[in-house]
Simulated assay, not measured.
Amino acid sequence: MRRRAERRRKAAGDPIDTLTLQLRLGEIAREIQALAGSRGFAVAHHTRAAQAAYDALLAEACRRAGLPVEAPHLVTDRTPEAERLREELELASRGWSW
């Protein structure tokens, strides 16, 4: 019985790692929101970099939650908005928050 519980815990992932991932998603989301209202040199570059980091973290969160993850668009290396929204909604429906 103890081994079964340990295997289930390992399959679900370390809860501390999951919490860290959720916190990091929230930090990046806030950074993207702050960049949306700013002006200045290289804001577009920082916004793209932050969005790429967010998409990568979102994909990792989906993998941990057992959700399918689509590959980024091959031409632009960015996740389409509809896919990003689907992943966010699927995670939220499973109790994830950030």
Results as ranks from 00 to 15, higher is better:
45 H>D: 11
40 G>A: 05
53 A>H: 10
25 L>Y: 00
54 Y>N: 10
52 A>L: 09
46 H>K: 11
11 A>V: 13
14 D>W: 15
12 A>W: 06
31 E>H: 11
57 L>C: 03
27 E>T: 10
35 L>P: 00
6 E>F: 11
57 L>M: 10
19 L>E: 14
22 Q>E: 02
21 L>V: 10
19 L>V: 08
14 D>C: 15
10 K>A: 09
15 P>V: 09
47 T>W: 01
15 P>E: 10
16 I>G: 06
49 A>H: 12
56 A>K: 09
13 G>A: 15
22 Q>M: 08
52 A>T: 13
25 L>W: 01
31 E>Y: 03
31 E>D: 08
14 D>V: 11
22 Q>V: 05
23 L>T: 13
55 D>R: 04
35 L>Q: 05
56 A>I: 04
21 L>Y: 07
47 T>F: 02
11 A>R: 12
48 R>P: 00
29 A>C: 06
38 S>G: 07
50 A>K: 04
9 R>C: 09
40 G>V: 05
36 A>M: 03
54 Y>H: 14
9 R>N: 10
9 R>T: 15
16 I>A: 12
39 R>D: 00
31 E>K: 07
54 Y>L: 09
21 L>W: 06
35 L>T: 00
26 G>K: 12
15 P>R: 13
41 F>V: 15
40 G>P: 00
51 Q>F: 03
6 E>Q: 12
11 A>P: 00
19 L>I: 05
31 E>A: 07
51 Q>H: 12
54 Y>C: 04
51 Q>C: 06
17 D>P: 00
10 K>T: 08
27 E>W: 00
15 P>I: 09
55 D>Y: 00
47 T>I: 02
15 P>L: 06
26 G>A: 15
46 H>W: 03
56 A>N: 04
51 Q>Y: 04
39 R>K: 06
51 Q>P: 01
42 A>G: 07
32 I>N: 14
53 A>T: 08
42 A>N: 09
57 L>E: 01
43 V>N: 03
36 A>H: 07
24 R>V: 11
35 L>A: 08
29 A>E: 03
14 D>G: 15
44 A>I: 08
28 I>N: 00
52 A>F: 01
43 V>Y: 00
9 R>M: 14
55 D>G: 13
38 S>F: 01
44 A>F: 03
45 H>Q: 14
53 A>W: 00
25 L>G: 02
42 A>L: 08
18 T>F: 04
16 I>S: 07
47 T>Y: 03
41 F>W: 06
30 R>H: 08
24 R>E: 05
57 L>T: 02
53 A>S: 14
14 D>E: 13
49 A>L: 13
10 K>Y: 03
27 E>G: 08
20 T>E: 13
13 G>C: 12
45 H>F: 10
23 L>C: 10
11 A>G: 03
28 I>D: 01
22 Q>C: 06
12 A>Y: 06
8 R>V: 04
38 S>R: 15
36 A>C: 08
10 K>S: 06
52 A>S: 14
48 R>M: 12
41 F>M: 13
20 T>K: 14
41 F>E: 08
28 I>Q: 05
12 A>H: 06
10 K>L: 07
52 A>R: 14
36 A>G: 07
43 V>M: 09
27 E>K: 12
47 T>N: 04
19 L>P: 01
15 P>S: 12
35 L>S: 02
21 L>H: 05
17 D>I: 13
43 V>P: 00
53 A>D: 04
18 T>Q: 12
33 Q>N: 10
